[in-house]
Design a binder for these strands. Sequence first.
DNA 1: CATGAATGAGCATTCATTCAT
DNA 2: TATGAATGAATGCTCATTCAT
Lengths: 207, 207, 207, 207
Amino acid sequence: MGTQERKALEKQLRRSQILDAARMLLFSSGIDSVSISGISGKAELGVGTIYFYFKNKEEIFAALQEEGLALLYANIRQLMEKEPSPEKQLAGIAEAYYQFSEENKDYFDIINYFLSSPTVFFEPGLKHQIDMSGHKILKIIRNTITAGIETGVFKEAQPGRFSIMFWGTLHGLLHFKKLEHTVLENENHRDLYRYSVNKLIDAIRRS
Amino acid sequence: MGTQERKALEKQLRRSQILDAARMLLFSSGIDSVSISGISGKAELGVGTIYFYFKNKEEIFAALQEEGLALLYANIRQLMEKEPSPEKQLAGIAEAYYQFSEENKDYFDIINYFLSSPTVFFEPGLKHQIDMSGHKILKIIRNTITAGIETGVFKEAQPGRFSIMFWGTLHGLLHFKKLEHTVLENENHRDLYRYSVNKLIDAIRRS
Amino acid sequence: MGTQERKALEKQLRRSQILDAARMLLFSSGIDSVSISGISGKAELGVGTIYFYFKNKEEIFAALQEEGLALLYANIRQLMEKEPSPEKQLAGIAEAYYQFSEENKDYFDIINYFLSSPTVFFEPGLKHQIDMSGHKILKIIRNTITAGIETGVFKEAQPGRFSIMFWGTLHGLLHFKKLEHTVLENENHRDLYRYSVNKLIDAIRRS
Amino acid sequence: MGTQERKALEKQLRRSQILDAARMLLFSSGIDSVSISGISGKAELGVGTIYFYFKNKEEIFAALQEEGLALLYANIRQLMEKEPSPEKQLAGIAEAYYQFSEENKDYFDIINYFLSSPTVFFEPGLKHQIDMSGHKILKIIRNTITAGIETGVFKEAQPGRFSIMFWGTLHGLLHFKKLEHTVLENENHRDLYRYSVNKLIDAIRRS
DNA sequence: CATGAATGAGCATTCATTCAT
DNA sequence: TATGAATGAATGCTCATTCAT
């Protein structure tokens, strides 16, 4: 039915409208000062309407998180695909994550928000969707490593594990960014990050 | 004076009492639902009394964080000192951190909370004190590595950087714990962690 | 639409309801003990509802102040318009102010509160509105004086200044009301007030 | 008894110590941010001690108010005594009050605080003392006027009333100071004040 | 579908005052 | 006398969520 289609489309449109408002607010004022009424104001919709399209405030954030993961995924693909060799590709992935954490700090923060919080639970369906996004990113890494193994550049018996470790190291180091001028004292964070990535690539190259 | 001493002791006691309550609440309800009035209720003290001993809610959290870091530091020392070789010592440090994240989940969470949060800042003095605690832990790692280099077990031109990377990897992987049954799918998190630690030790052993 | 109209009316009603509660509280307990939660209790509305209709506690006071000024203005007009001559009109204005300070003591107090308070400031927009109300009252006085000059009853080179002085004298004397039985000792405050008004009218009549 | 005397002296000393602290705080932070604990800190005395010397926070303010009135009294005397004629003396008194409101704004505010507040009641004894201070000031005015009448410069059947009116006008106009840039629009407040003082002196000169 | 009025629990923080020592 | 630990009521304000229309 044409009518049905249009309705579905409109529904999608409203969702975007709300998400746009939420994103703008998130980026301009930080995660703590995003309120439903704020979103409703920015989106020029009633508060009740927000609740029609999203069950929760958290659901809105989850959607934003997905956006972030999608963007990160795209960035990674882009930077990685420029590179010819698995080694350079891995480095490209790491570089993409670093850039993302700086250039899309708000998305990075929101992803971390959910990852760090010991509480927050989403509905199973929602959670699955988000996990899938994380999965896709991890898969790129694993594929790159597997490809490297196949071409003989890498030697690694457990590419699945190594890819998680790789990702975990990047993640942990990015977390340390805020310690740059205190605990890490003299270390330049960027250099430290690159050093670590090289270390990891070295480790898999020779093992 | 006996009286003075007892007074000082009682004062210390009250502080602990408050911190205990805060810790219990934090542990049972998550960081977001720890409120001053909740603490005052749990501690069976008036709200005002809380503020007599702590300037701020944040000061309470900072104290808790420091407690956590001190405990972690002690645990690390203990597990590490059992081991004879730098390699085993590094493994011991990693093991201690893992255990800490499980057995002292509340402390682990609070440390992470402040590390992850894009906003919260402590007063300079407070921040410095916390940083020092973090520093001490990092120093153990660096010393272990340096010792390993000196005894010829490790080869690494930049022990300072490597120790941060080491710590960062552990940190990042522990963060992934909650993804165990989703993104990490088939991987047993514990095994993954150990695998990674070995990888890191391998990397420094041969390089 | 009938529905829309009723809604708008109800909204206006709620505002009044809140203002009524605030006024009653102010009247019965003094300005310092008017709290939002007190108002919400008296008005039988939730605290949040108060904040839905008024941005601030101060906005409520400002509304009350404006109410007061409007009432004073009306009273002045009424008493003044009965009088035929500028002299009697001036006396009528003074009389109206005196009556207002007695019969609408709560309004009088709130107007004074904001005038006396060394701190409190309203938002520019709000302030402007209040100032306008004050202005209107001052203008009546000035117009009366100007009219008197034009008809030759008064002689005064600076009617603007004199009207402020006139108003200031009334204001200052009403402030002294509470000193009636102490500093002012034997003076009957009412008589004193009338004496002063006559003095002022005399002063402008002859000068 | 020497001991008794010293004790009484010490008691007086402590009072001053507390008042000094309160005054400093009042002047540096404004009337609203003077707290007992703040005073106790500044005075280097325990909070309990404050309550030993003053029954109330209000009692402290009352003492400060008296200080203010005494200072005002002294200022008035000084400025007035320079002048030879009753007319100039009246102008001097007015001038002194104006200066006091500017140069000792904090004292002026505290005096007004008690005058404006519709609630606050002091103990009878205290109240009497404060009233006396007010009285003394009023008496100067009355004496000046009476003197003027006796020397034939002034003509006024009711010097008592006129002096209150005089004082009330000054008081009311000083209150209008904060309306200078709004309600009073183009009027320079200082000029307006002087104009009014002259008007009053004129009024009594010729009547 | 869309609205937005209404809610009320919840928050961190302050501070005058008391009272056992 | 002097102390300062303890209190707890009180404050203004926020905001996710609901629900009648």
